[in-house]
Amino acid sequence: MKIVLAHGILGFGGGLLPFGIGYFNGVRGMLEQQGHEVFAPTVAPLGSLDARSRQLARQIQAHWPGDEPIAVIAHSMGGLDARRVIHRDQIVGNRIKLLVTVGTPHFGSPVADAVLGRCPNVLAHIPGWLLSALQHHAGALPDLATRDELHDPDCEGVTYLEVACVRKNDSWLATSPLFGLSRAIGELYGPNDGVVHYQSACHASRPPIAEWSVDHGEAIGWPSGYGGLKGMAAVWKPCDQHLLRYRSLAERISSAVAATEL
């Protein structure tokens, strides 16, 4: 199966960092070992939804010309990008038969609201590096603000699967730097991963296929506890549980595609 890994805001595709480090830590290699063809494109890290989705569609078609079916695993804003490609691009959109979104803010994120000046009680808890990056280039922010409806509704002939994430209650030593932000979001929306609240990561008309007990970064294999030591260790050896989660997603994709072809 051809699988696209679509990165989120401030993300990147494959080949931009040394040692083969990828945004989806260790996932590409694991999927390729299972026999899948994998493409990890890079789109504008802080671009608008329109700009990112156009870039995503162009790169997929250039990498895999033709009309073979494609599945997408997307994290965060990458899920919005893929939904827009499916909804608006007549060539690539028609090729995407299955989309798995992980921690995607389908109904927006309080973090975007805060940077836009709509949620001051959350603003104070955003890590400085993240706040600075978002304030210097806010092209994506209006598309990530909280809202009541999807940007792009489901299309017929496509299987949509959602994974929601909820930050773990760790000890102070193991706590993610997103802890304060998660707590502030929790006061407004309840369970969340430190960036996206649970209900936003879900589809309004169906339950998620899985709920992962991770924060927004750990959802793609980059834990940040123990003063960053867990993240440093993950560079050399991605967490087995993280890879198992994505292996399960790949199995779900294969089963869904096989059922469609019958």
Rank of each mutant, 00 (worst) to 15 (best):
P18Y: 08
G20S: 00
G20V: 07
I21M: 06
F24S: 02
R28F: 02
G29V: 00
G29M: 07
M30L: 11
M30F: 04
E32L: 03
E32R: 14
E32S: 03
Q34L: 10
H36M: 05
H36P: 11
E37V: 06
V38T: 12
F39S: 04
A40P: 01
V43W: 00
A44P: 04
L46D: 04
G47H: 11
G47Q: 09
S48L: 12
S48G: 15
S48Y: 08
D50W: 06
D50T: 15
D50H: 11
A51I: 09
R52L: 05
R52K: 13
Q55Y: 04
L56Q: 01
A57N: 07
Q59H: 11
I60D: 01
I60W: 01
Q61K: 10
Q61T: 10
A62I: 01
W64T: 13
W64R: 11
D67T: 15
D67P: 00
D67E: 13
E68P: 04
E68F: 03
P69M: 05
V72T: 03
V72G: 03
A74R: 03
H75K: 13
H75N: 03
S76I: 10
M77R: 14
M77Y: 14
G78D: 07
G78W: 11
R83W: 01
R83M: 06
R84D: 07
R88H: 14
R88P: 02
Q90D: 14
I91H: 13
I91F: 07
I91Q: 15
I91N: 12
V92Y: 05
V92I: 15
V92S: 08
G93I: 12
G93P: 12
N94L: 05
I96H: 01
I96F: 07
K97Y: 00
K97D: 01
L99R: 12
L99D: 03
V100C: 12
V102G: 07
G103P: 07
G103T: 09
T104M: 12
H106C: 06
H106S: 04
H106D: 01
H106P: 02
